[in-house]
């Protein structure tokens, strides 16, 4: 017997400890809940590589699963486990899936594994930090018909942006003058970018593709001529005083 209880257990040496560890596991991406189809496919796979299916631990992933239209009645995860075991696999857990599916898994008493986001995040930190993007500084007013673009970084305009002019940046836009033309920040999709200007009389403002034209800006007439800032909050453009 593996578990015995001696009369005098040594309290200084704990019987076990818990530690996190990373494993490489085979993931079985399940697309359909058709038992017959799964079985047919499994038999084929086993025929192709019999040695692979030798008590191989697998994780069942439900992300790509097309849920049956007639609900989850009759969905049997224990049956699925048994099916896989019968073909030389050792299922260790299930991940992803709709809340209904997860409830069914919990009901069957099977473990649910967390999403694999942390692995992606770990990979990101290994990448070298990109060189800081240079800002583009324009030391003259931007006139009607001119278009200025700052790729990868911020755009700083020391002067006004006239009606009919367009200033564009992958990063933030700072205008030390009146904005009468169009200003588009975060044009490659960066939703964290801002637009700042000394007075907001713009034809169009846009951050990461969310835009408003002049008649949608609805600035309080009392705010005309005041420094303003524009950013995205909950996917909506928010226009506010620069100094509150």
């Amino acid at each position: 017997m593996l578990l015995r209880s001696p009369r005098f257990a040594d309290e200084n040496i704990p019987p076990f400890e818990l530690k996190g560890s990373l494993f490489t596991l085979t993931v079985l991406h399940l697309f359909q809940l058709d038992r017959a189809a799964i079985e047919r496919h499994l038999t084929e796979k086993v025929k192709q590589a019999p040695s692979f299916f030798n008590n191989t631990p697998v994780v069942i992933d439900l992300e790509g699963l097309v849920e049956p239209p007639n609900g989850l009645d009759g969905v049997d995860f224990n049956g699925l486990y048994a099916l896989l075991r019968g073909h030389g696999m050792a299922p260790v857990g299930i991940r992803h899936g709709s809340p209904e599916l997860q409830a069914a898994i919990r009901q069957a008493g099977l473990p649910i594994l967390p999403d694999s986001r942390s692995a992606g995040a770990a990979k990101k930190t290994e990448r070298p930090e990109p060189a800081p993007a240079r800002s583009r500084i324009v030391n003259h007013p931007v006139r009607s018909g001119q278009q200025i673009y700052a790729p990868d970084g911020d755009l700083i305009i020391l002067g006004a942006v006239s009606a009919g002019a367009e200033v564009i940046a992958d990063g933030n836009i700072h205008i030390y003058g009146v904005l009468r033309g169009r200003a588009l920040a975060g044009v490659k999709g960066d939703v964290e970018t801002w637009i700042f200007c000394q007075s907001l009389e713009a034809e169009l403002i846009s951050i990461a593709g969310r835009y408003r034209i002049s008649e949608q800006i609805n600035l309080d007439p009392a705010d005309r001529g005041k420094p303003m800032q524009i950013h995205l909050m909950d996917d909506r453009l928010v226009i506010d005083h620069l100094i509150r």
């Binding site: 009607s144 001119q146 006239s162 009606a163 009919g164």
Partner: peptide, 13 residues
């Protein structure tokens, strides 16, 4: 005024 603004841009560039 708009067209003059455009010309000023061309003068500057």
């Amino acid at each position: 005024v708009r067209d003059s603004d455009r010309i000023l841009g061309i003068l500057a560039s």
